[in-house]
Design a protein around this nucleic acid. Structure first.
Lengths: 213, 213
DNA sequence: GGCATTACGCTACGAGTCGTAGCGAAAGCA
DNA sequence: TGCTTTCGCTACGACTCGTAGCGTAATGCC
């Protein structure tokens, strides 16, 4: 975000309603048109604002879509389900549900691709999307350690390393399953994933025969 | 690919040299310009061919970049390093090295993003990029089972499920580390990842203190 | 060798998008 | 009531797109 009147400024304040309308219109355009065919003129028309207003608030398509997609991840929560496995399954299913939405699919990966050549954009993605997700990893890990389900790590540097690793594994697997393999990360898949994450491949006794709880 | 004269056709055959020049020019343009600023006119000029020639062979930017990026993954091999852990670390490091190249970074995620709204494109990505990677998983898994490092699975359906899961975890983690976290998947990271993949989080005794083999 | 067939380079074109400039009107703050 | 900033609107040059048309080049077949 870069809207909302910067506190005690004089003059006409920016319309907060326009912000929400623009971001909603951006998501709607992502659903209807996808990333490549989405134009700022079209978004402006959908939102009922002038194209110039859009350019006054966002530098371009990249920044706009980052903000529009970021709001989708605001709903992520980490309720205490009693065990680490249950906590993981719960939050992964939430994450998968968000990624299943077409506006997230077509928007998120596109801005990530653009961010490989734009450091400012990558930073924007990190602060408004990635860090919110990563916080859940830290929270879940601390909770599991308090339960005694995970061993405490050596030091703060080691803790950060492992947290980063876990985050890349979890988020990466769900994203890859959803976008590249193009198959749903449903409950059955999430159960198998959680088992591998907690106990590894070597322990996999192939207990599930197919479909049963 | 859709080039090379379709066998016994009459008339002037398509120049194979043009194909390689175009694909190389596409990768060069990806490095210099990135996905969004890459234009087919620019690629044609770099390759020394007319723009119309490009349109005669590829339907558009998406298909062209898929083919150009796919060639990067031809180098993936799975040499027998004696143990499952060593095999995984070896192939993951290769995968990471390819993903570290700017033409792979900016090109791959962009076409994946587009493929969320284009079934034909997704199929093209699957056959020319994803399936080649997935074959390594099947091969490595079979090798590990022959060594007795992994338990045999219940049936063919279960085997496919687990192979798909492993693939999404491995490829997804490396991609997420490289593109989203924007940090290198170096040897240290790969060691930690392989440990989690094989033995899970619960067994993690935080043995590495930082940097030592 | 000659002929049919296909690919190639080149030019030109309408259509669409981009991002910006300039203007008058509207909406807050002091 | 003024001052300041935003807003909607129109218009603009520049650029890219994807295609059409033409003459030429390179092959297979007879």
């Amino acid at each position: 975000m870069q809207s909302s009147t910067p506190a005690g400024r004089a003059g006409r304040p920016r319309s907060a309603a326009a912000d929400t309308a623009i971001l909603a219109a951006t998501r709607a355009a992502l659903v209807d048109l996808g990333w490549s065919k989405l134009t700022l003129g079209d978004v402006a028309m959908r939102a009922g604002v002038a194209k110039t207003t859009l350019y006054r608030r966002w530098a371009g398509k990249n920044e706009l879509v980052v903000d529009a997609v970021a709001e989708l991840f605001d709903a992520l929560r980490l309720p205490d389900r009693g065990s680490l496995a249950a906590d993981i399954e719960g939050v992964v299913l939430q994450f998968a549900a968000i990624l299943a939405r077409p506006e997230a699919k077509s928007g998120l990966m596109a801005v990530v691709a653009e961010s490989t050549r734009d450091d400012a954009l990558r930073e924007r993605i990190r602060t408004s999307i990635v860090d919110r997700q990563k916080r859940l990893v830290l929270e879940g890990r601390a909770r599991a350690q308090a339960r005694g389900e995970l061993p405490p790590e050596a030091g703060p540097a080691e803790a950060a390393r492992i947290a980063d690793l876990i985050f890349d594994v979890v988020a990466g697997a769900v994203v890859h399953r959803t976008l590249v393999s193009a198959e749903p990360a449903d409950e059955e898949w999430v159960r198998g994933f959680t088992r591998v994450l907690l106990y590894g491949l070597a322990s996999q006794p192939a207990e599930t025969g197919g479909e049963w709880a």
